[in-house]
Design a protein around this nucleic acid. Structure first.
Lengths: 204, 204
DNA sequence: CTCAAAACATACCGGTTGGTCGGTTTATAG
DNA sequence: CTATAAACCGACCAACCGGTATGTTTTGAG
């Protein structure tokens, strides 16, 4: 499998994609560079031409493979509409229905890395934290728009609710991974959806 | 630091305690046996006299250091009382107030291991899952007692709520670890407490 | 006291890891 | 064409890992 494309962008992509898969399945520390190189058909020399260390490769995976695509998709789903609260509920529903066996088995890649490395590697922690911060901000923006449209009960703290949403979502994926049971994920998201819709002004 | 106590229970304890600390800080795979042995002052021969493999040591840590004490304490906090819902809220409050800097930085040891190993090591997954199952059962029992006492709104699914509680708690510790911010943990638990008390029958 | 088994000590091993280094190939500017 | 730097190659390395083999000390039953 000689690939020697001399196309640096392609080589970089192959490395990122292969590394993303290994890291998702095994975690960062257990992911072997040799295994990544074998799978992607890239040589060790090429790897260290593109990335100075394993850590740099991992950080690039976090940003470019895990973070940005995820945030872009979420932002698209929450494009300003007349009813942001329903948009949020739909996001939960799509997550629920899109739960693959693989995603249940291996969990959320960002959450995995956060749990593995947040206590040990400050660079990783900061990158992951920045992505989760952006995530929270997207959710809070939607909640704020709902509040401004008069859709929320009074006294709802949108920042805390956004925080709680992220935490509970990560917790749900984690618990589903532990139980290996997609229904666990589904049930958690259902309760979360009910909680979310409970923020709506009471019809009376 | 020659310890050679020839007291097998003491040696075993020293190993479990030291291993628990290293695993909590670094994760199971990154925890080095040599480091554990140096810290505890136990020799490699003694280690492999008590445990056949590193995995067996880890499983014993999960059961005896992480799992059983935690479940015993929770069971004590939820001893059958007249108002189980308030008991649950008090558990959340004590967790909130007992959040140490270390626990925020390194997270819940069970959750850490679950995220690290659930996808790779079936033995670990089953042990951790059993503990979390017991955890859920304790919570659901309390909710069921509350329901039987007529304290809950109709239509509350106690099993799902118990599941949601565990997931959200783990998610909150995970997010606090990522942000390195105890306030994040506090805020999540506050919202969770409100959610819990929202299950109570409406006064009217 | 005897002696077998439990408890422990330590030198050692093969395998894997992230990372290095000298050399080669290819693209491209001049 | 030539020259230069980017892109890539792959053998090699020291460090570390979990685990083993062999031998020694202690305990406690008979």
């Amino acid at each position: 499998m000689s690939r020697t494309t001399h196309n640096p962008e392609l080589t970089r992509r192959a490395l990122l994609d292969s590394a993303a898969g290994h890291i998702h399945r095994l975690g960062f520390q257990a992911a072997s560079l040799d295994a990544i190189l074998t799978e992607s058909g890239v040589s060790k020399g090429a790897l260290y031409h593109h990335f100075a260390t394993k850590q740099e490769l991992g950080l690039a995976v976090v940003d470019e493979v895990y973070g940005q695509p995820f945030l872009a998709e979420l932002a698209a789903q929450l494009r300003r509409s007349a009813d942001p609260l329903t948009d949020l509920a739909l996001v939960l529903r799509s997550k629920r229905e899109g739960a693959t066996l693989c995603s249940v088995q291996h969990g959320c890649p960002l959450n995995n890395l956060a749990q593995e490395l947040a206590g040990q590697d400050e660079a990783f922690r900061q990158r992951i934290n920045a992505i989760m911060q952006a995530w929270r901000n997207l959710l809070q923006d939607a909640l704020d728009r709902a509040a401004q449209a008069g859709l929320l009960r009074s006294g709802v703290d949108t920042a805390r609710e956004a925080l709680f949403l992220v935490a509970s979502l990560e917790g749900a994926t984690g618990l589903a991974k532990t139980t290996r049971d997609p229904a666990v994920y589904t049930h958690c998201l259902e309760v979360l959806e009910e909680h979310l819709l409970g923020l709506r002004v009471r019809a009376s």
